[in-house]
Computed example of a mutant assay.
Amino acid sequence: MVKLNKIYTKTGDDGTTGLVRGPRRSKADLRVEAFGTVDEANSSIGMARLHTVSMPKLDRLLARIQNDLFDLGSDLATPGADAEGAPPSLRILPAQAEWLEQQIDGFNEALKPLTSFVLPGGSPLAATLHVARTVTRRAERLVVELIDREPDTNAAALVYINRLSDLLFVLARVANANGENDVLWTPGKFRGGNGS
């Protein structure tokens, strides 16, 4: 159980932060940037949930994802392998990404087929899910870079964050009346100076 009594410790006043293990790192460290961006994605999903009152199934799904994103943050904040005999670190498991795939497949069945790329927008829920999707993609890019620099980073974390961005795209379309109210890109529409 996590217990947080004191909110400020002053230990980060020198620009460093503590990880689950290992020496303190700069707050500008790539690993810190990666799990910080996962936290940002989680917050974006929290904003999206403000618009799910009429969609309780979707709200429950997003709540589960928020919990999984804390798992992912803990995973990324725990560098290196576990010491022999130590309790196992909290890691993202392949089953968590597989669950996302099941959600993608299930929700995608009812969607209107796409004829163009989708512009972020439509309903307030769809718009906020697109924001969460793009933040998730940024987190994914950082995890890719982290794995390049620190190859012992859990590869399942990358798979999870990749699938999550795909699911958020699908859910944004669900929020737009299963794609009926998607805002589609029209390539070159305003190149001739047609105004609106």
Rank of each mutant, 00 (worst) to 15 (best):
A157W: 01
L61K: 04
G85R: 12
N42T: 04
P187H: 03
K3V: 15
R49N: 08
L58Q: 09
T186M: 12
L62S: 06
L164E: 08
L146T: 06
V144I: 12
L125C: 02
G18W: 03
I65V: 04
P94T: 14
L184N: 03
L158R: 09
K3I: 15
R64M: 02
P88C: 03
D39I: 13
I147T: 05
D82M: 12
L50I: 08
N176Q: 00
L142F: 03
L158F: 07
M1Y: 12
S54T: 02
V183G: 02
H51G: 10
F107V: 11
E84Q: 13
M55W: 13
V38S: 06
N181S: 12
P124A: 00
F35Y: 12
A127W: 05
L125A: 02
G80L: 04
D14T: 13
G12K: 06
R149E: 01
F190Y: 09
R49M: 03
F117N: 07
L58C: 06
V144R: 07
P88D: 08
R137I: 06
D166C: 13
L142M: 10
R191C: 14
V32D: 05
N67S: 15
L100G: 00
I92R: 04
L167M: 02
L76M: 11
R163L: 05
N194L: 10
A77N: 01
A157Q: 04
G85K: 12
M47Q: 10
V143Y: 04
N162I: 04
I161F: 03
M1R: 09
L76R: 08
W99G: 09
V20G: 08
D182K: 10
Q102M: 12
K27C: 05
R31Y: 05
D182Y: 05
P124H: 01
A48V: 05
V135A: 14
S26W: 04
L111G: 15
V174E: 07
T37W: 00
V174M: 03
G85W: 13
W99C: 06
